[in-house]
Design a protein around this nucleic acid. Structure first.
Length: 650
DNA sequence: TGGGGATTT
């Protein structure tokens, strides 16, 4: 790997690390930072006094990069070089270089706040500003100031972000390592198109007719636009006169595509054939497609946002940041000089695009994050003043504190409770971890484990009821359990129990159009949660998936536990119709999501009270995943709500 | 009665 640009900087990098506790490395694409930094530090002897850790925002990256490094060092993966991701720890006593997801490092720091086993911690891809990386940045700042031993921290980031990170760490040194990209020529549109599907189509065809061979990668915002563009491209390409240009294959690429469709982009095209890959931002960082020479960038991306004032999520189409636009363009220069067609004017890039993507920590509900920080028992900490690189709003932190108070994770003075400590041990959102603890008291832990695991899975576990899917289905819609009228949590429980009854048969999932990947993930999560809860559980066999099934039941205890866990996500039905009013500190008018299996009574009215998993604002504000609860369980929560004094919670 | 960007413990 001697031809990687970073190798020429080894001396400089090591010198700087020796003299400084924190160093920021600006490593452009292809610099080799992810594989080489750890090896340099290993060569310099940093693995003699501890492990060199490298965090990654994604699981696949942790695995693939560690594999490469093991190969380069000629050792077996899992020995001197290993990785740790959720469900999989491939390290041993001999491990000196360890790649891990930043989520795993956060978990480790829960049981070992000093992170003593590490001599160096490298936070890779910090410019992506994932929620977990941002928490780690704050923790690292405290740690280098306090830890007795000589911890070294390296942070790799992007050009546009480096200065800021360096400033955050008391103006620590900043080194720039060039990348190994070929030049990419950028073309801007004169103005923003009225339709970026049409504009992409036109640009793609121009490339196909005029430009020499090389694949085209087109960045769109979502599945809908991708499908539209794929159809139009297929149509246009087919109508081109035969022999006037080379053949074409058009491939969609997005997260909800089944794995076998996703891997199609990794097989090379037949000779004299151009591939058009129409993708979401999955192709920005998560998947790298070889052979791309041309990039078309719509300049938009879908982002999930949380509004702490309403407690509501929305999925909005927003402009990409400069970092994202550059990342997209860079995809054209991996194998030879490329071209990037931006469907927006340079003025928009310069004046309107943010330098860096809005960090996730400013777009998420922070209940879990705040609980995590509270559980670390950091001395002299006011959670509202925690030193984040980009602090979330006070409103967002206060929203989190209120939620935590309502579910007994913190007391009226903002101190973490023993319930809160147990909750922090569980890799779940606070509402679900609270539910598990309560369910354990009521003897329905097994059921709650299943519900929590099902809700932890990626969305789209269940089949869609759309028209296009009705056509595709080989058989009429099958009867999945219906939650016995109590709602979606109960339905999820019943589905998993059916699967358990069918010996976790993959064919069973396929038959019912359940996402196989998702269901297997649920099974693993459930297992992990069971293991953690077993330490706390009262009955030892309480966690078996099938131990609760016996004929008709009203799931009373489970629903009661859910009511406690979702105390900050309660809603009361309006007197004469099926609209609900949320019962938090910020009342919202919302509807039960049409996909819900909650059943109305004989008068067509839903129950008076429900808890909801989330509020999502699409065409209207909806509650997604609801469960019917009873008035007598709700009243004590309302009492508590009245006594709430936010200013004391911090 | 309606719609799923990408991650992660």
């Amino acid at each position: 790997m001697a031809n990687l640009p970073i190798v020429q900087f080894e001396k400089k990098i090591i010198e700087t690390v020796e003299q400084n506790p924190v160093v920021v490395i600006i490593g452009e694409t292809g610099s080799g930072k992810s594989t080489q930094l750890s090896q340099m530090l290993h060569r310099k002897g940093y693995t003699d006094s501890g492990i060199v850790a490298v965090t990654q925002p994604r699981r696949v990256a942790a695995v693939s990069v560690s594999r490469r490094v093991a190969q380069e060092l000629g050792v077996r993966l899992g020995e001197e070089v290993g990785y740790a991701i959720r469900f999989e720890d491939r390290t041993s006593e001999r491990t000196q270089i360890k790649y891990l997801t930043d989520g795993v490092l956060l978990r480790e720091s829960l049981s070992n706040p000093e992170l003593n086993q590490y001599s160096v911690i490298i936070l890779d891809e910090a410019h992506e500003r994932s929620l977990n990386t941002d928490i780690l940045l704050g923790l690292m700042k405290r740690l280098v100031g306090s830890r007795a031993s000589n911890l070294k921290v390296l942070i790799t980031s992007a050009t546009l972000d480096g200065e800021k990170v360096s400033k955050f760490f008391s103006d620590c040194p900043l080194l720039t390592v060039p990348g190994k990209l070929f030049p990419v020529e950028i073309f801007y549109s004169k103005e923003r198109p009225t339709s970026y599907v049409e504009s992409s189509l036109k640009t793609a065809l121009d490339i196909h007719v005029r430009e020499p061979e090389g694949d085209v990668l087109i960045f769109m915002t979502g599945q809908d636009d991708i499908e539209k563009l794929v159809l139009k491209l297929e149509d246009k390409v087919r109508s081109l006169e035969e022999g006037s240009c080379m053949d074409a294959i058009i491939l969609p690429l997005h997260g909800s595509l089944p794995p076998e469709m996703q891997v199609r982009v990794f097989s090379p095209p037949p000779p004299n054939c151009r591939r058009f890959i129409v993708a979401t931002n999955i192709a920005e960082t998560s998947l790298t497609v070889d052979g791309v020479v041309y990039v078309i960038d719509s300049g938009y991306v879908k982002q999930r946002q949380y509004n702490p004032a309403t407690g509501m999520y929305s999925l909005d189409v927003v402009q990409v940041s400069k970092v994202q636009a550059n990342q997209r363009a860079g995809r054209a220069g991996r194998t030879r000089p490329g071209k990037c067609y931006r469907l927006y004017p340079s003025r928009v890039y310069n004046d309107e695009f943010l330098d860096v993507t809005v960090p996730e920590i400013q777009r998420s509900s922070l209940a879990g994050t705040v609980l995590y920080l509270k559980s670390l028992d950091l001395p002299d900490i006011d959670i509202l003043k925690f030193d984040f690189l980009d602090p979330p709003s006070t409103e967002s932190l206060e929203d989190a504190l209120k939620q935590l108070y309502l579910i007994d994770a913190i007391d009226e003075n903002g101190s973490i409770t023993s319930v809160g400590r147990t909750m922090a041990e569980l890799p779940l959102e606070p509402s679900l971890s609270r539910t598990l603890i309560e369910a354990n008291e009521y003897g329905c832990l097994s059921q709650a484990l299943t519900v929590a695991a099902m809700l932890s899975a990626e969305t789209n576990l269940l089949p869609n009821r759309s028209k296009s899917n009705e056509k595709k289905r080989k058989h009429p819609p099958l009867d999945l359990p219906d939650g016995s009228g109590f709602g979606d949590h109960i339905q999820l429980l019943q589905i998993f129990e059916c699967w358990d009854e069918n010996d976790y048969d993959i064919g069973w999932c396929k038959y019912y159009d359940l996402q196989v990947r998702g269901m297997l993930f649920v099974k693993e999560v459930r297992k992990q949660l069971s293991q953690i809860m077993q330490k706390i559980a009262k009955g030892s066999s309480d966690v078996q998936a099938n131990q609760s099934r016996k004929g008709h039941q009203n799931y009373r205890n489970l629903r009661k536990a859910l009511c406690i866990g979702y105390a900050s996500q309660l809603a009361e039905r309006m007197r004469h119709h099926n609209g609900y009013r949320t019962l938090g500190f910020k009342s919202q008018l919302v509807q039960v999501h049409p996909s819900s299996v909650l059943q109305p009574d004989d008068d067509g009215l839903y129950g008076s009270y429900v808890v909801y998993h989330e509020l999502i604002s699409t065409s209207r504000p909806y509650m997604r995943n609801v469960c019917a609860v009873e008035r007598q369980w709700v009243m004590p929560i309302l009492d508590k709500l009245e006594k709430l004094n936010v200013s004391k919670l911090r």
